[in-house]
Design a protein around this nucleic acid. Structure first.
Lengths: 161, 161, 161, 161
DNA sequence: TTTT
DNA sequence: TTTT
């Protein structure tokens, strides 16, 4: 049984970072991936793919990516269902990311970097590799319930570990 | 923009083969892909991933795969929406397969092969490679509107070419 | 930076299991992956792809796979070089597997299973998922230096952790 | 039989464009893909992966990519051998690309774009999709034997079609 | 609504 | 023989 996905696209909005009641970080975001071909009207459409990422990489995503960021995602397709407010089951298909790669040059979008940076090119960071600690230490929100972070109704049953 | 998916799993039902009004074959099927890990109850769950394949490979899929067949899929994730009968938009995420690989040994499921076959191992066939004609010529349904095949309401706008 | 490989093919020989001086298991094997297209002589060629896998999954591979086994591999391409016996550098390109999937039905190749098994189909095992312990406990060689296992000249520098 | 590779990395040199005696374009280049983890000395190493691409996309690669360009590659691993000048067989493992994606912002590396461009972000082009014609028409070298292009000793047997 |  |  193999289930592997690789995506490169742009975030449609800022990522949404939340925490489970037990304090596990989850970020969700949607990647717009332009299709390689045009439709019959001659337009190139995009697929809008919902992605989820857990734990530390979720915080990296929330800290480094924003609307419009070019990102690479490796993960797997997950399907799940829940009971909608109208009583019928809602089926969801999304990508659970193992790692997210920041592919934007450091100061590409003006207001992102702030200070000038002679090194125009991005080194990348791997948001999901368990072996790697990001070298540039961002001020992560270490208290999952503090700050502006919201708690959400996700049970730990949703956790892949 | 990269959008690549590789799956190996089992068909949950026989594939469904239809034809567009202009005679293009489309097969749809769902792959059950067992997860590599167990949930907190200790059970291994599966993802049920809807797949679509077009044209000749669609007919190959319909001819060679059935409920329970082990298959490999290469393709991309597609998102689309349509207006549901209750008036609100329904969002769909599915895999559009470029190729489907038959991974079952030739006579694995008893009633499949029928006669004994000295060559126990499956060589596979590539259902979606444009360069390759399947060497074993199956009796394809050459008239898209004949036989038991159904016509469906898919406009050619859905075609990726 | 993304580097992802998915392969399904057959082992050209029994896997080779060794241990580093510090006792870490490494298995190597070659996967023959038939091409989807034929060459100009009308033959379908194969690619012979060298694979490496480390630690517990290496032992699973050695215990469950053998010449001819159908296997799925997920991993990344690694390049490295060493000094050949003629003094010049030898460049190597191989796949470092994260996980190996056994895709063979349980008693497909006769001498494998032995006793009859009503459940003809393989459940698969994921040889490289860190979260998953194989449910069927094989008699793993717990002493890396015992048994018929060989020690090899690989320094821990080759380890990806 | 599945053989799928996805890479994102940087070209180590300008691509090398050649033509077969029968006039088919082939570009070769090496992608440096930084590893997600550091070695025991604390350095992040890279894999240097040789890639080949044929026909029109080969010309796109030669026209749009250069040393240092960030690129995405989709393709398959190919192994082949030839007789080295010392009489012994040389084994080669490389990636045959179906498509190459230009991931660099339009004017990232100064001397590339030239004039200022309000649209800072790159839309990408898909160098290998048979359905897609690049919208920005570059001055392709339509005569394979003209210009500075070299002819090489590759027989058509190497062509995947 | 799910496969082995 | 390697990129940022």
């Amino acid at each position: 049984m193999i289930n592997r996905v690789v995506l490169v696209g742009r975030l449609t909005k800022d990522p949404d970072l939340r925490y489970t009641p037990s304090g596990v970080a989850v970020a969700t975001f949607t990647l717009a991936v332009n299709r390689a071909f045009s439709n019959q009207q001659g337009d190139r459409e995009a697929d809008f793919i919902n992605c989820v990422i857990w734990r530390k990489p979720a915080e990296n995503v929330a800290n480094f990516l924003k609307k419009g960021s070019l990102a690479g995602v490796e993960g797997r397709i997950q399907t799940r269902s829940y009971d909608g407010q109208d009583g019928k089951k809602v089926y969801v298909t999304e990508v659970v990311a193992d790692s997210v790669q920041f592919l934007e040059p450091r100061n590409a979008s003006g207001n992102q970097g702030g200070s000038f940076n002679g090194n125009q090119q991005n080194q990348g960071f791997n948001a999901g590799n368990p072996f790697e600690a990001p070298s540039q230490k961002p001020s992560f929100n270490d208290d999952p319930f503090g700050g502006t972070s919201k708690t959400i109704d996700i049970t730990d049953d949703d956790l892949p570990f």
